[in-house]
Structure formats: C-alpha cells, structure tokens
C-alpha cells in the first residue's frame, strides 16, 4: 500500500499528464469519426457569439463577391422561370392549398460565420440552429454548388461538415449518364475533389459536369458540383478522377440549408430492409 502511494506521489505529474492526454486523444478520435454528438464543437453560445462578432467585420471585405454570387443565382433561377409556360405562375397560385402536400424540399437561408479549408477535417459554422428547425444531416448548398452537411446543432448555430472533410462522402453522378459515384477529398487542393467508385462502364472525358445523384436523402438530384479536371484509367478501372468544383471554397458567404420532408419516411423504410 505504502509503495503504491509512494509511486503515485513520485509520478503525480506524469500520471496527471497521462490522464489529460488520454482525454485529448479521446476527443481527437471522436472528431475523426463521423459522429453527430461531438463534445468539442464550435456550435455553442460562446464560440458562436464570438464568431458572430468577427463575421460582422469580415463580411464587408467579401461583399462584392457575395453580391455577384447571389446575382448569378438569381439570374439562373429567373432563366428557369422563363422556360416555364406563361400561365404556370397562375396555376401555382390556384394550387396553393395542395402545394404543401406535394412539397418535398424546403430551403432556409443562412450566413457562414466561419469557413475552414486548410485542414484535413474542415468544418463551417452557420448562423441557424435548432430554433430555426435545423437538424443534423441536412444538405447545405449555395448558388454554385454543394458546401456540406450539417453536423452538430445548438440553439442558434450549427456546424457544417464541409465537403473538404476526410469524412465527407457525397453521392454524385454524371450529368449526361446515370452512372453514380462518391465524392471524397484527399486533403490537398481545396478546389479539387476526388470522384471514386465510378463504374468502368461510364465513359468520361475532361470537362464533363458532375451533379448530385439524389440517391441520399440529403441533397436533391441535380445540384451542380463541378467538372472533371483529369483522370487515369488503368487495369480496367478508374485509378483516380479529379473534380474541379464550380465553387471557390475559400470564399463562401450566403448559403441555403435544405430540409427534406420525406427523409424520415425514406429512412424508416430503409431500416425495415436492413433488419
């Protein structure tokens, strides 16, 4: 007994160090896995509040870029509207009672308070949280493409698992054929992502457009992602396919959070299959 006490007294700093280091390593391992309940996250009142203050200054430096992004998106949407028959707006008005019944997606605008792109596991912080109905695993996009998936949620803030994150896996497909693949990031260039698991039957060439596949409940089908930058075909398989994003991931301002009303139904259905 005496020896144990002596041992503890002699090595008390070392033991204390080991204990704290163990805690830090547990947090690290937790952050490397795709968890939604991380203890260490920036979506709390203190860090969120400070980032809010910082952003209120930083916002001004990028206003021109953000305005252009929003203008581009507006023009794109107006062009879509212009392709509709002239009376479609009227028809929408008449159907107003039933629109909610058929509606699958709803969109919520948000501001990015913090945007990381130089690490391996990058996160964003946005200014909408559980008060505004944001839940984990919702898609986040802007006018030029996908940004990420909501991760941890607090009352007023949410962290977003960026597509520039080692854990991010997003279902995408080619625009001109229904071949699906997964979009990942190798941690090198923040505007170039990797398309993996694309079947060899898909014929691709440089400059082909990649869009979201709509196979997950997170992103609707057809959101633009990027174009194929280069690829290597060897041993009857694609060794690598690099995708250049339409977005500049270093300048992201206003974003949209997507709610999928059918998500719970689809997930409940999928659960019955796996059981």
């Amino acid at each position: 007994m005496q020896q144990i006490v002596n041992f503890i007294v002699k090595y008390k700093y070392f033991l204390f160090f080991l204990l704290l280091e163990l805690i830090a390593l547990i947090f690290t391992v937790q952050s490397h896995s795709y968890h939604k309940s991380k203890f260490v996250n920036s979506a709390n009142a203190i860090t969120g509040g400070i980032y809010k203050r910082i952003n209120s200054f930083k916002e001004y430096t990028n206003l021109k870029v953000y305005n252009q992004q929003l203008l581009d998106e507006n023009t794109y949407l107006r062009n879509l509207l212009a392709q509709q028959p002239a009376d479609s707006m009227l028809r929408l008005k008449k159907m107003i009672d039933t629109t909610k019944y058929f509606q699958q997606y709803s969109y919520l605008s948000a501001k990015v308070y913090r945007n990381d792109y130089h690490k391996k596991y990058n996160y964003l912080l946005v200014n909408k949280g559980s008060k505004q109905g944001v839940k984990p695993d919702q898609g986040v996009i802007n006018g030029k493409g996908i940004i990420g998936i909501t991760n941890t949620i607090s009352k007023n803030y949410a962290t977003v698992l960026s597509i520039l994150n080692g854990n991010s896996k997003i279902n995408v497909r080619l625009l001109n054929s229904y071949h699906f693949g997964t979009l990942e990031w190798d941690g090198k260039d923040y505007n170039v992502l990797q398309l993996v698991d694309l079947p060899i039957q898909a014929t691709i060439k440089m400059g082909d457009t990649i869009i979201t596949g709509g196979k997950s409940t997170i992103f609707p089908e057809g959101i633009p992602v990027g174009t194929i930058l280069n690829f290597k075909k060897e041993n009857n398989a694609y060794q690598y396919i690099n995708v250049k994003l339409f977005n500049d991931m270093s300048a992201i301002g206003p974003v949209t959070i997507i709610t999928n009303f059918d998500k719970e139904e689809i997930e409940a259905l999928e659960e019955t299959i796996t059981k």
Partner: peptide, 22 residues
C-alpha cells in the same frame, strides 16, 4: 490543456491542440 482545448473548441478540431499543447 485547457488552452489547447479552447482553441479546439473554436476550430472544431477535436483534441489535437489540447494534446499537443499539453
């Protein structure tokens, strides 16, 4: 340890800063 953890909270990096600073 707490200093590193504070930085980790702000940058969503788990416990890497805490481990290294400690």
């Amino acid at each position: 340890f707490l200093l590193g953890l504070c930085i980790d909270f702000f940058s969503d990096s788990g416990g890497v800063n805490a481990a290294a600073t400690l």
